[in-house]
Amino acid sequence: MKYFLSILAALTCSVGAVKAQLSEGTKVGVATGKGLNTDRSGVFWSSPTESSNVIGDFYIDSLWHEGSVKLNAPMTQFGGMESDSLAGITIRYNVLNDELEVLAKKNDVRVIKSSYIKSFETKNSGTSQRFVSIKSLTPDTGLQGVCEVLSSGKLTLIKHYKPKITKPNYNPGFGTGQKNTIVRLDSDYYVIANSKPEKFNAGKKAVLALMADKEKEVEAYIKENKATLKSDLDLKNVFDFYNKK
């Protein structure tokens, strides 16, 4: 009960703050199994809703992880106190509905829309991942939602997540096609330099061109570490090496 009340207190905000617009996922009628957000006593609240005609992937990671959240601005919380941070909570990010789900207790899920979030971190087996609102990183972009920050510095490498929605195309006359709405998680790499994001197709040639001012050192690093540049970790390590030189 104490744990539940602490989560309830952390997520209690002003009534006006929770009247967010529906996400694209909600607009197309795609449910994630956690339902629509409703304003209940000024709390970010989610009531379960099942859908039998939607399949696929909705989360960056469907497992719950311990994490922390940084809000865009201080919110009035339980007792009249204001804070822009939440810590020691259990979270996962729903890419389709563009919202962070918070597990208050078993079968009790609250949500925070991404428009209120500046950043959040998750911890898993001793490692952490940092996610940032892409608008806070680069305001003048058409990109929406959050991105994972893989490396920060002169060249900031991010991984931007997005839902790929395939609508039903079932033809009852011929009995062919797909009856379900299919959601697939998609992502792209972007490099931010001077506040401008550019889509990045990972590969040795692209990396060396991007890091031309330190090409020899970077090429030697790639060779020494046998980096294939086909994984987030490989790319992170190379960009970290460049940003620290």
Rank of each mutant, 00 (worst) to 15 (best):
V102P: 00
L100S: 04
L155V: 12
I158G: 00
N107F: 08
S151R: 03
K135I: 06
S128N: 12
F200C: 02
A220Y: 04
E219A: 15
L103P: 01
S136Q: 10
L137F: 02
V146F: 11
N97S: 12
K164G: 10
K135L: 07
F200V: 07
S136G: 04
V102F: 05
E148A: 08
I158Y: 03
L143T: 09
L150A: 11
N171I: 15
Y170A: 13
E198F: 02
T141Q: 07
K179R: 12
V146P: 00
Y161W: 13
V102L: 13
G142C: 07
L137G: 03
D108K: 07
F120M: 03
K199V: 09
Q144M: 13
V183E: 00
K105R: 13
I222G: 06
K154V: 14
G203H: 08
L150Q: 10
L210I: 08
N194F: 03
E219M: 14
I165D: 01
N169Y: 11
K154G: 06
I117A: 05
V132P: 00
K159C: 11
F131G: 03
K214L: 09
E99T: 05
K204D: 05
K154L: 13
N107Y: 06
V218M: 07
A193F: 09
D108T: 13
P172S: 10
F131M: 04
A104C: 14
L185Y: 02
G153S: 11
